[in-house]
Design a protein around this nucleic acid. Structure first.
Length: 270
DNA sequence: AAATTCTCCTGAAGGC
DNA sequence: TGCCTTCAGGAGAATT
């Protein structure tokens, strides 16, 4: 499932292949994604030069002079750059062609999105209220501590709230809480600033390590070159119910917190 | 306001 | 072999 490391891995994979190139054609095979893919994209983009590929949260932003194409991979999406004559496979919904090369979006579950924004893309309703980037200096323990005061929600869904900090999905929330020694169900308003500092550092460390490994591939995720990510083998608790805790040997527990599957060590995480 | 629940969708896995 | 059920999950929308 694409979380921040997978999206950043994708960005780094596709950017050098398409930045500075002109769009030759746009193909929409399936417009029923999370929201309808704008039908006017072919007219809007054909002949235009792609200036830059950036990322905000889990959104990829393809900047043109007259606007920005916003891409989201949902939970099963992947982007690859393939030769333009490559036949589309099942679930290949959207192509951005650059002469001989093609940026292709595949998304079996269609939770992803392809959107267009004319004005500053960061003002888009989906991007406007997002919290800080986890790998930036704007994200730190004091920030988590301040936002959590007086709230009773469990720390795990708190950490996964995009208004608090972006890009931390279920996998990395589990991993970061394990690394920080914090129980995922603990009320977020009852965690000290000291412990939040440790959590913020854990979030940064886990995300950076995952980026370094090309992301986590559980089922669908692929890097832009088609290879899987290699962080799955580094996961300490996610998907490891019943296996021994890497620290103390106690069995890893699994339970649902905030509608999401949570994995943790009941002894190491308090 | 904050917290919880519902929703979209397909494929994998398990039961019979 | 095959059909049915259940589960997973990003994140906005709806509801409590």
């Amino acid at each position: 499932m694409p979380e921040l490391p997978e999206v950043e891995t994708t960005r780094r994979g596709i950017a050098p292949l398409i930045e500075g190139r002109r769009v030759s054609a746009v193909v929409i095979r399936e417009s029923r994604l999370r929201w309808p893919v704008p039908e006017r994209l072919p007219e809007l983009l054909s002949g235009r030069k792609l200036l830059q590929v950036t990322r905000r949260a889990k959104y990829l932003l393809l900047r043109f002079t007259h606007g920005t194409l916003i891409l989201h991979l949902g939970m099963s999406g992947s982007l690859r750059v393939v030769p333009a004559n490559t036949p589309p496979a099942r679930h290949d919904h959207f192509d951005l062609l650059f002469g001989d090369w093609c940026l292709r979006l595949r998304d079996p579950r269609r939770f992803g999105a392809v959107l267009w924004m004319e004005e500053d893309s960061l003002l888009h309703p989906l991007l406007r209220s997002l919290g800080p980037e986890p790998l930036s200096t704007q994200f730190h323990g004091a920030h988590l501590h301040r936002l959590s005061r007086g709230r009773r929600i469990a720390v795990k869904p708190f950490l996964m709230d995009g208004r608090v900090v972006v890009g931390v999905g279920n996998i990395y929330a589990n991993e970061a809480l394990f690394q920080a020694g914090i129980h995922p169900a603990r009320a977020c308003g009852r965690i000290s600033e000291r412990r939040y500092e440790r959590l913020a550092e854990a979030v940064k460390a886990v995300l950076q390590a995952a980026i370094d490994q090309g992301g986590t591939t559980l089922q669908d995720f692929r890097q832009a070159d088609g290879n899987p990510g290699y962080f799955a083998q580094e996961l300490q608790v996610y998907g490891r119910a019943g296996q021994p805790c890497p620290h103390c040997g106690n069995p890893i527990r699994q339970r649902t917190i905030g509608q999401r599957s949570s994995y943790y060590c009941g002894r190491c995480q308090r």
